[in-house]
Structures are given as structure tokens and as C-alpha cells.
């Protein structure tokens, strides 16, 4: 890891996220039933639960895609429940998607540049001329992204490659890069290592830790890979059937009887091992 020694720009402070009594309903189905979630500034918090527990729904509600039925989402104590998804980007909320949502027709570099869209100001007339302020802004953007994101995540060799032809693991990393370019104060990662092999998973885990340490950003993630969750999280919140059934440190959660029951549905299931730290391999 190299780049933190290069004069780092002023990082926005890590954000605190408070979700209270969040409920979400699709037709008659209750996807979320009054969940509470508190994410401390600068922490890595993991949201886990069996399939269909409502993790991704919670993510989508927090990032503003779904309008919750009840409850509030607060960023640093400010209620943002009614703020549309696109305006949350400016507030410092960045996220990635479970099944990679990159712009497939564009290069890695352009994808990452897009992360900064909301922070730029040049308009359409400047764009036609590519002159003055627009030109300056684009140049600064390029330099900054090269320094802070591309070097940091070691993407130099693929910056001009169209994302569509990259392997899966790298695409996930580019999506992380794009989220970082948003200068997030809180980074929401939806299954960052799903479908990755051991080596890629470790690489990504290291990247997430580095992001937290060097960018000082709060991380909230949804993940199935228990090994990784237990290794890197400060705080774990467990959902089942749209309810929060436990929250606490990895150790506390691992020994929580409700959690064990939720995952095993009984006893003697070989998946017990999953909670003890091994990878669950339950890949979406």
C-alpha cells in the first residue's frame, strides 16, 4: 500500500448513520419490520442474515431506492428519509451493488470519474467548448482520481479498459473505486466479495480495511462470507425475516442463541461451522 504519503486531500469526516424503526412492505409482504441499526463513525459494520432476511432491502431503503413505510434514516443526526437517492450522493452516501452496476460501455477511468459527478459543476456550454473552467475541472478530476483512487486500489494497468471485459473480481474492485471517487463519508457495500475466490476475497478485505484506515470513512456492508465479516467488522447486526435479532461485536453475535437458531433452524447442521469463522460459501 503506497499512496497515503502523497499529500492527501482533506477528507470529509466519517459519518454516523442511525436507522430507527425501519419498515418496508411490498404488497402484503413485510420485507423489513421495524429494524434499528446504529453505525458508529469510522467503524466497519456488517449486516448479516440468512437469505431473504431483508439485508438488501434494508440497504435499498437506506440508500433511498425504496421508500420505507415507517422509520427514519439519519446521517449525522440529520433526517434524510425523504431525500431522493441521487441527492444522497452529495451528502456523502456511496454504495455498491450486489450484482455489479457498472457502466459497461465505458472504461474503468470513466466509470471512476462518474463517481465524482455530483461534486463537479461544469455545465453544458462549457462542455461543448472544453475550455476554461470545464477544462480545469476535468484536469483536476483526472489528477485527483489517479492519485487517490487508481493508485490506491492498484488499478493503473486497466484504467483504459472497458469494464465489460474485466473479470468479475476486478469489476467489484472498480465498483468500489467508483464509490470511493464519490468522496463518501459512509460507504455501503452490498456483498463485496460474493462470488470471489479466496485470494480475491482477501484482497478485497484488505482494500476495505485500508479504505477505512486511510480514508477514515464509515463502512456498512452486507455479506454472506462469515469468515470475512467476523475478521474485519467492529460491529455486526443480524437480520432474520425482516427483524433484527441480534447486534453487537462479532464475538457476541457468534454466541447469540437466536443467531445460531436463525442460521441453523435446529441443531447439528454442518453450517454451524460458518458461524465459527469459516467461509460460508453461500454465494449469491
Amino acid at each position: 500500500m503506497s499512496p497515503s504519503d502523497s499529500a492527501a486531500p482533506v477528507r470529509p469526516p466519517a459519518a454516523r448513520l442511525d436507522v430507527e424503526n425501519l419498515s418496508l412492505q411490498f404488497g402484503g409482504v413485510k420485507a423489513l419490520d421495524g429494524i434499528d441499526l446504529h453505525v458508529e463513525p469510522g467503524s466497519i459494520t456488517a449486516l448479516i442474515g440468512p437469505n431473504g432476511a431483508g439485508k438488501t432491502s434494508a440497504f435499498n431503503a437506506i440508500s433511498g431506492f425504496y421508500r420505507p413505510k415507517t422509520g427514519t434514516v439519519k446521517l449525522d443526526g440529520v433526517d434524510i428519509t425523504q431525500v431522493p437517492a441521487r441527492d444522497r450522493a452529495k451528502l456523502g452516501l456511496a454504495r455498491t451493488f450486489q450484482n455489479i452496476a457498472l457502466f459497461r460501455g465505458m472504461t474503468v477511468l470513466d466509470n471512476i470519474k462518474l463517481g465524482r459527478h455530483a461534486h463537479l459543476t461544469s455545465g453544458v456550454f462549457g462542455a461543448f467548448l472544453y475550455w476554461g473552467r470545464t477544462r480545469r475541472e476535468e484536469m483536476e478530476l483526472r489528477a485527483e482520481i489517479e492519485r487517490d483512487v487508481i493508485d490506491f486500489l492498484e488499478l493503473d494497468h486497466i484504467r483504459n479498459v472497458p469494464v465489460a471485459i474485466l473479470p468479475y473480481g476486478l469489476q467489484k474492485k472498480v465498483e468500489l473505486a467508483r464509490a470511493l471517487a464519490m468522496r463518501p463519508r459512509i460507504l455501503m457495500l452490498d456483498e463485496p466479495v460474493a462470488g470471489m475466490n479466496r485470494e480475491e476475497t482477501e484482497d478485497m478485505a484488505r482494500a476495505i480495511l485500508d479504505v477505512r484506515d486511510e480514508w477514515g470513512v464509515t463502512v456498512l456492508l452486507v455479506e454472506h462470507d462469515m469468515g470475512m465479516v467476523m475478521d474485519i467488522s467492529d460491529h455486526v447486526c443480524v437480520l432474520n425475516f425482516g427483524r433484527r435479532i441480534a447486534a453487537g461485536s462479532p464475538t457476541e453475535v457468534r454466541n447469540d442463541p437466536d443467531v445460531i437458531k436463525a442460521y441453523l433452524g435446529g441443531s447439528g447442521d454442518p453450517r454451524k461451522a460458518a458461524l465459527d469463522g469459516a467461509a460460508m460459501g453461500e454465494v449469491a
Binding site: 441521487r86 456511496a94 457498472l102
Partner: peptide, 13 residues
């Protein structure tokens, strides 16, 4: 064109 949902999350109106 490529992914309107991601565009929105990035802050593109």
C-alpha cells in the same frame, strides 16, 4: 444509457 440505477446513485439527475 448503460445503467440508469447506478447513474442515480452517483447523484446524476
Amino acid at each position: 444509457r448503460d445503467r440508469d440505477i447506478s447513474a442515480e446513485i452517483i447523484g446524476i439527475s
